[in-house]
Design a protein around this nucleic acid. Structure first.
Lengths: 282, 282
DNA sequence: GTAAGTTACGAGCGACGTAAAAATG
DNA sequence: CATTTTTACGTCGCTCGTAACTTAC
């Protein structure tokens, strides 16, 4: 029987040119590989080496054989990897979302429901979310509008309403609402990974400069310590000492979220809505 | 290390449903396969079976694993086959031709030149010949007109001139030449595998009926024993007792043959022409 | 003489089969 | 009780590494 170790050694031989070097690379003795190659040749039943008394090299047929060997060895590695990955995917519930805030409650809700599974979330644009839901990558997706797909249910999850975070001594700190235009021109702090929110401030406040922070904890630190204004929402951003939180009145600052999953998961979807309602901080 | 025999046994298990039946099919003992499957599972590192105390079945991950196993086992088989076939192709000189007669001398000439190789010939239409020459399937091709291809040389091999074979007592047996029209309406014997010649008689003699023979020796027997007219040429058909061979005067009954091969084989090509001239029987 | 490959030989791992045990319907 | 899987155990084959041999540059 043709054995995988023979194919691996054949590939190593092709890569290193001599049995000596190849055997060293593979980690077997030189005579062992010499034998392997002879047995492999017998297995194929046709010559794949040109030999002289103290040299051995691949002939044309051997080079073909190496191509096949490479493909097979590679496909075996890929198979192992894929099987493991498939096993993991069966044990993982992946949720895709257009924004981070609604993910938090959905993920925590799923974690308490499926205690034996891995719950993971990731950000993606809308088309990626929908195709991922269809091909099974995502068990649930969170979008800013309802997704109509046969076999899937969409429910309204709730709203996220953006606010400005201003220092208490800011000239506009006493206002009950503000619009983007009111602060256009001020430099502001902004987080990098906030999904579709990412582009809104720069679009609505074209004269402002934004200091983009990648790291979440560093961002929170900056918000607390600096006097720069920043953003929060009813779903994100704790109350901070010396800061005021003022809702933004523009319609773009309010967005609805919908969560979509298989029809068979409809019960879970409604449970998500309940959990969402009970944990939001208006 | 993951071993091929494990993958084969996994496939057998998937096909037969139980280890007992699968082990029987593969030809190993049942405990041996039980062990193989456990080791394979450990090799993947993730569960691929659902087990109860006296049953074992594939789980979803296992079914994925079977898919990969099938592909790998198949590709290994294919690799062995391909390597052998490639080896054979290296040892074979294949000549393609539009007609059988010129093949005979070319093949015999090649046989005496490359005594350590297998010389083979086959019939093909012109486009198949040219593409086969380009992709290396054919070392030489014989066509009815010159083939102009960069890297390849074409030489004129010679003519084939078709004749009628008539019984000596045939009314037209004394003529020195005949045209297709002269015998149109007579029933005739015809060989099946004669390349482009195959369609010519039926086209030129629409009122004749042709008795098509597949087997060459049976055809020769029929020609000798029956009184039906048939075809021969300067390249094909021995002189027969009680028969006369009368050349056909139509221009369609004469065809030129060219042989084409790599530029590096130019010496062989000219040798072919010499051999062809010396062996034809006008 | 150095570097390469093959042959020879003894050792050990591992896959095998037989036999027996356990579980299920 | 028949069927299926697993465990136990002794055997045998195959691959291994070390050592010695051969050949070439």
């Amino acid at each position: 029987m043709l054995e995988l170790y023979q194919l691996e050694e054949l590939v190593a031989f092709a890569d290193h040119g001599t049995i000596s070097k190849a055997s060293e690379a593979v980690g077997v003795s030189q005579p062992a590989m010499s034998r392997s190659m002879r047995l492999l040749e017998e297995e194929f039943g046709v010559p794949i080496f040109n030999r002289t008394s103290n040299s051995i090299e691949l002939n044309d047929t051997g080079k073909k054989a190496v191509e096949y060997a490479r493909a097979i060895v590679e496909s075996v590695e890929k198979a192992k990897e894929s099987v493991r990955s498939y096993d993991r995917s069966l044990k993982t519930i992946l949720v895709g979302s257009e924004a981070p805030a609604p993910l938090w409650t959905v993920l925590s809700m799923l974690s308490s429901t499926y205690y034996d599974k891995t719950i993971a979330g990731e950000m993606k644009d809308r088309s990626g979310l929908v195709s991922g839901l269809r091909n099974g990558t995502y068990r649930f997706i969170i979008t800013t509008d309802a997704v109509r797909l046969p076999g899937f249910s969409t429910v309204f999850l709730g709203e996220e309403r953006l606010s400005f975070i201003l220092p208490s001594d800011h000239p506009l700190a006493s206002r009950s609402t503000l619009s983007f235009k009111d602060l256009d021109g001020e430099n502001m702090l902004l987080l990098e990974h906030i999904g579709f929110w990412r582009d809104l401030p720069e679009k609505m406040m074209p004269h402002s400069k934004f200091f983009i922070q990648d790291d979440n904890t560093a961002f929170n630190e900056l918000v607390r310590k600096s006097s720069l204004p920043s953003f929060a929402s009813n779903l994100a951003g704790e109350n901070l000492e010396g800061k005021v939180k003022i809702p933004i009145s523009d319609k773009e600052a309010t967005v609805e979220f919908y969560v979509t999953g298989r029809n068979t998961d409809h019960g879970i979807l409604t449970a998500m809505v309940r959990r969402f309602s009970s944990t939001r901080s208006d």
